[in-house]
C-alpha cells in the first residue's frame, strides 16, 4: 500500500472524511448510502472505544512507571552531571578560589525571580581578561535591541572592584503583555546587585535576550 493511500468505500467516500465529521450529523449522502452508514457506525464505535481507552489508561494505576524508575534515572543524571566551566575569582600563594558557571547562574536566576513577568532560561557566563577591560564598552550588541551592555562606570559603586570581568549572557522568557524594556532594566538592576551581594565580585557586563513569551 502506498503511503498516501487512504482507504475508500465502494461509494468513493474516504474513511478519513467520514472520521473527520464523525461528531456531526450524517450528510444527505451518508443518510442514503449503506456503505457510509456501516462505516460511520464502525468508526463511531472506534471513536468511543478510543476515548474510553485513553481515559482508562490515564486513570489506571498499573499503567504508571514503577516509582523506582525516577530514582534510577536521576541517579544516572547525577553521576553524569555536567559540571560547567570554572571561573577564577581570586588567586594568591595561599590558594585559588574558583566558582562554577552553574553556581554563578543560580545567583542570577535567584535574582531574576524577584522580577515579575520573567522566567530565566539559559545562562552563559564568560570572562574577559583584565587586558581587555579597557575596551569593554565597545562590545555593544548591534543585532539585538533587547540586549545591551551597561556603562562600566556603574560598576565601581558597591564593592571593591575585584575579580574577573564577567560577561553574563542570560536568555529569558517574558510574560505576555509586560513592558519589556522596563522589565529588562529591572532585571539587569537585580542581577547587578545580586552578584556582588552573593559572590563578592562586580557584575561586569550583563546581556539579556528575551527569546520567548509565555502566557499567564
Amino acid at each position: 500500500m502506498a503511503l498516501g493511500d487512504i482507504p475508500r468505500l465502494g461509494c468513493g467516500r474516504s474513511i478519513d472524511r467520514i472520521w473527520a465529521t464523525i461528531d456531526q450529523p450524517p450528510t444527505a449522502h451518508e443518510q442514503q448510502c449503506e456503505q457510509c452508514q456501516t462505516a460511520r457506525a464502525r468508526l463511531s464505535g472506534l471513536n468511543e472505544a478510543t476515548r474510553s481507552l485513553r481515559e482508562s489508561d490515564l486513570r489506571n494505576p498499573s499503567l504508571k512507571a514503577h516509582p523506582g524508575v525516577t530514582n534510577a534515572i536521576m541517579d544516572i543524571a547525577r553521576a553524569e552531571i555536567r559540571r560547567s566551566k570554572r571561573i577564577r575569582l581570586h588567586s594568591t600563594v595561599n590558594g585559588t578560589t574558583e566558582i562554577s558557571e552553574q553556581a554563578l547562574s543560580s545567583i542570577i536566576r535567584f535574582a531574576a525571580t524577584a522580577v515579575p513577568g520573567i522566567h530565566s532560561r539559559r545562562c552563559r557566563i564568560e570572562v574577559r581578561s583584565t587586558a581587555d577591560n579597557l575596551s569593554a564598552t565597545d562590545n555593544l550588541s548591534a543585532t539585538d535591541n533587547l540586549s545591551a551592555t551597561d556603562n562600566p562606570s556603574e560598576n565601581t559603586g558597591t564593592t571593591a572592584s575585584t575579580g574577573p570581568h564577567l560577561i553574563v549572557n542570560l536568555r529569558v522568557a517574558a510574560a505576555t503583555g509586560i513592558d519589556i524594556p522596563r522589565t529588562v532594566d529591572a532585571l539587569r538592576h537585580q542581577i547587578r546587585n545580586a552578584i556582588p551581594a552573593g559572590v563578592g565580585i562586580t557584575a561586569g557586563t550583563i546581556n539579556i535576550t528575551v527569546e520567548d513569551l509565555y502566557d499567564v
Binding site: R83, S84, C123
Partner: peptide, 12 residues
C-alpha cells in the same frame, strides 16, 4: 513555563 524548565535542564 515548560520552555524555561527545559532551558534550565539544558544548563545541567
Amino acid at each position: 513555563d515548560e520552555g524555561s524548565i527545559v532551558a534550565r535542564a539544558q544548563d545541567g
